[in-house]
């Protein structure tokens, strides 16, 4: 019983598990728990989806105004 992980513990370890920051023994217990627990497998999937969805928020466009201003800055700097 002592080495059996609870779901309540799992949800606090999920980030360290994904970051490969757990020691080997604990990582094995987490993996074991995931194989046996449908709820925690679904939870992990939710976290993965959350991360993927956060990635869709990135907007790397630069407003044309600021781009023009920055280029002017660059030119004046180069010509100095």
């Amino acid at each position: 019983m002592a080495d059996e992980l609870s779901c309540k513990e799992f949800v606090e370890l999920v980030t360290a598990y994904l970051e490969l920051a757990l020691d080997e023994l604990l990582a094995q217990r987490v993996a074991q728990h995931l194989r046996e627990c449908e709820g925690c497998a679904a939870y992990l999937e939710q976290i993965r989806q959350t991360i993927a969805l956060l990635g869709t928020l990135a907007d790397s466009s630069t407003a044309p105004d600021s781009k023009a201003a920055l280029l002017a800055l660059f030119r004046s700097h180069v010509s100095e």
């Binding site: 609870s6 779901c7 309540k8 513990e9 627990c37 449908e38 709820g39 679904a42 999937e45 939710q46």
Partner: peptide, 9 residues
């Protein structure tokens, strides 16, 4: 300390 109701898939 296990799920009372499972998280949604």
């Amino acid at each position: 300390h296990h799920w009372a109701s499972l998280p949604q898939r």
